[in-house]
């Protein structure tokens, strides 16, 4: 299915968010996720299934003022 990841179109084969993150290359990373504008906690990822057209944001710690 096609989804948007950080504003870029990506094709994934796994619906479960936890697995999809691994498929997208996010392994062993300190990450926070939001799906269609809603925060998805680490605990919720395993119970969250992606669907066609979803907008996923994957964020990590970065510099800030």
């Amino acid at each position: 299915m096609n989804i948007s990841v950080n504003g870029q179109r990506k094709t994934i084969s796994i619906a479960k968010l936890t697995m999809a993150l691994e498929e997208l290359g996010y392994k062993h990373m300190k990450l926070a996720t939001a799906l269609n504008g809603e925060f998805i906690s680490v605990d919720e990822r395993n119970n969250t299934n992606l669907k066609e057209g979803d907008k996923l944001e994957v964020l990590s710690p970065q510099q800030g003022g």
Binding site: L24, M29, A32, L59, S60, P61, Q62, Q63, G65
Partner: peptide, 16 residues
């Protein structure tokens, strides 16, 4: 600090 988009390839978040 802030939160910004992470590219799976670079893993800049963990480095920072």
């Amino acid at each position: 600090v802030s939160l910004r988009r992470e590219s799976g390839n670079i893993n800049s978040g963990n480095s920072f």
